[in-house]
Nucleic acid binder design. Structure first.
Lengths: 145, 145
DNA sequence: TATTGTTATACTCTATAACTATA
DNA sequence: TATAGTTATAGAGTATAACAATA
C-alpha cells in the first residue's frame, strides 16, 4: 500500500472547525460574547427551561465550567435563572427577549460568514455537503445520549 | 427572523472531529502512538526532509511542543534526526522504513473506521462530502501559509 | 543580529474534590 | 442517601521567555 488517497477525516474536520471558530471570534467580540457565552445562548433554545447540569451536558461542558458564564449572562440580563418552586435546588434557565435577540443576531452574522466560505462549492456539492455533515453530526450526537 | 435553519458549521465540524479523534485513540494506542506522535509521522510525508521548526509549523504545533514527541519517535527508531551538514543548527527529519510502515498501518485502520461512519451516507453524497470537505480544508490551509 | 533547537517557566483551560442546601 | 449548584484545588495542555550553538 503506497499512501492514503485522502487525508484522515479528523485531520480535515478539526482544523477546518478551528479555523472557522477563530474567524468567528471577532463577531462574538463585537457582541461582547465569549465562545462559551454564545454556546450557552444557543443551548437555551426556544423551549423555556433546563437545569444547569442538563444544559452543561447538552453543550458538552462540565457543570462547573459554565457557572461563571451563566453569572455574566444573567448579570447582563440575557438569561433568567429562576429557582424552581417545585425543587428549590434547581434553577430554571431561559433566554430573555434581549438574549434571544442577541443570539439571533450573532448567529446570523456567523452563518453569513460561513456561507461565504461555502460559496466556493458548486451548488449541488454545497447542499450535499450540508446534508451529509448534518447526518454525520446527528449520528455522533445521538450516540452520546 | 425566527431561528437558524441549520446549526453553525463550526458547531457541527468540531464535535464531529473530536468524536472521530476520540474513537480513533484506541487504534493509536494499539500502535503505542500518541495523537501528536501520529500527527508527526503524517507530517513527515514521503518527501525526505524538514527542519523541526518547519515541521511544527506544518502540523500546527509549537516548535517546543514536538520536541518530546520527536525524542520518543527517534528513540523507537521510527524517525531519523540527522544534523544537516550544511547548517549545523538544523536537524533533517525523515521517516525510517519502520516509521513509514507503522504510519501506513495506523492510517489504514483509522480510515477503515472512518469509512464505516461514511457508509451511512448515500454514495453520491459521500463523494460530494469528501470532495467538498477537501476543498474547504485546502482553502483554509492555503490561507495560513 | 537572526535562527535552530532546547529547557524552564507561566498561563489557560478543564476536570476533580469538597462543601451547602435541598430532596 | 442522593442531587443541584457552588467554590477551591489540582491537573493537562499550551504558549512564552530565556539560553547555547551556529549562521
Amino acid at each position: 500500500m503506497p499512501h492514503a488517497q485522502r487525508p484522515d477525516l479528523a485531520a480535515m474536520l478539526l482544523p477546518l472547525g478551528r479555523a472557522l471558530a477563530t474567524a468567528e471570534l471577532p463577531v462574538l467580540e463585537r457582541h461582547d460574547l465569549s465562545m462559551w457565552g454564545y454556546v450557552v445562548l444557543l443551548g437555551l433554545g426556544d423551549e423555556p427551561v433546563y437545569t444547569q447540569a442538563a444544559l452543561a451536558k447538552a453543550i458538552g461542558a462540565d457543570k462547573t465550567r459554565i457557572i461563571g458564564v451563566l453569572d455574566e449572562l444573567q448579570h447582563r440580563a440575557l438569561i433568567r435563572r429562576d429557582p424552581d418552586p417545585a425543587d428549590r435546588r434547581a434553577r430554571l434557565l431561559s433566554l430573555t427577549p434581549a438574549g434571544r435577540t442577541l443570539r439571533d443576531r450573532a448567529q446570523a452574522e456567523i452563518q453569513e460568514k460561513e456561507n461565504l466560505l461555502l460559496d466556493q462549492l458548486p451548488a449541488a456539492d454545497r447542499t450535499a455537503f450540508l446534508r451529509s455533515l448534518h447526518t454525520l453530526w446527528s449520528s455522533i450526537a445521538d450516540q452520546k445520549s
